[in-house]
């Protein structure tokens, strides 16, 4: 195979994957009302709540600790520079802005893609290998509605909540640092934080976290469905779900941020 051929082939494969993801996302979006509260079937909503617990409880400690650590590291690193200008209090603004705009959503998405994307791929992959997906189809039940929709709705609700919590943890790490180095008081600290963040930034970040949630669940499901053959296919599916979802999350972050910027939504005026 010539290099040109190889590039062409992988481009086609990439386009196919994006197409599969888009189609699958559309299918599941049409079925979301059926798993929701009040309007959906009671049994499905129970499955959705189960998924919310799983996704949230799975990723919460990891996302919180990762955010706290990165917040603390960011505070340490920037303090060394800012202290030279006598502007140590700007550590607060730096943390508040970088977490609400970017890091909170991103760290959460990476934590969730590590835990949830692999779990979904493994679960669905096992169902494919043991013919459970075929069993659903021949029973006349829709596998997308039955397995994917509860997970997707669960993630759409949970991931923004996790984002808020992990943002809080990241910002709180700044307080831990500043209280030990310049004896900053908690009230003063959070007053500074509230002054420096914008509602618009928070909203854009929550939109981003919904995009990340979509990518994580859809990639996990797609990779799971591709599992063919024996148990080793399940492991492969889980690995490639994590790799692909983490990669696509960062790519989507770039695209979304650039789009918000070009539309003039994120320019501080």
């Amino acid at each position: 195979m010539t290099p040109v051929e190889r590039i062409g082939r992988s481009a086609i494969r990439g386009a196919e994957e994006v197409g599969t993801l888009a189609l699958q996302s559309w299918h599941v979006t049409l079925r979301l009302p059926r798993v929701g509260p009040l309007i959906g079937r009671r049994r499905r909503w129970r499955a959705t709540m189960q998924q919310m617990l799983t996704i949230g409880a799975d990723a919460l400690p990891m996302a919180a600790i990762m955010s706290f650590c990165i917040g603390y590291v960011l505070a340490l690193q920037s303090a060394a520079e800012l202290r030279r200008f006598g502007a140590l209090q700007f550590v607060v603004d730096l943390l508040a802005i970088s977490f609400t705009r970017e890091l909170g959503a991103l760290i959460t998405a990476l934590a969730v893609s590590g835990r949830t994307a692999s779990a979904i791929a493994a679960e669905v992959g096992t169902m494919v290998v043991t013919e459970e997906i075929d069993a659903l189809r021949v029973m006349g039940l829709d596998p997308v509605e039955f397995t994917l929709a509860p997970k997707y709705l669960g993630a759409l609700i949970t991931v923004p909540c996790l984002t808020v919590l992990s943002t809080f943890c990241g910002v709180f790490a700044g307080y831990v640092f500043l209280s030990s180095s310049i004896d900053m008081n908690l009230r003063v600290y959070f007053h500074e934080v509230v002054d420096s963040i914008l509602l618009r930034d928070v909203c854009l970040t929550l939109i981003k976290s919904e995009i990340f949630a979509t990518i994580i669940v859809q990639v996990g499901y797609m990779e799971g469905l591709r599992a063919r053959g024996g148990p080793e296919a399940v492991g492969t599916a889980a690995t490639s779900a994590v790799v692909k979802s983490a990669f696509l999350v960062i790519l989507a972050d770039l695209v979304a941020t650039a789009m918000f910027y070009l539309m003039g939504w994120s320019v501080t005026g």
Binding site: T130, E131, E132, D134, A135, V138, M139, G140
Partner: peptide, 19 residues
């Protein structure tokens, strides 16, 4: 197809029971 499948019952090789 869904209507036809409702008239068919399938016992899969590996049972395919929901675990």
């Amino acid at each position: 197809l869904t209507a036809v499948r409702r008239r068919i019952g399938v016992a899969f090789q590996g049972s395919a029971l929901f675990s």
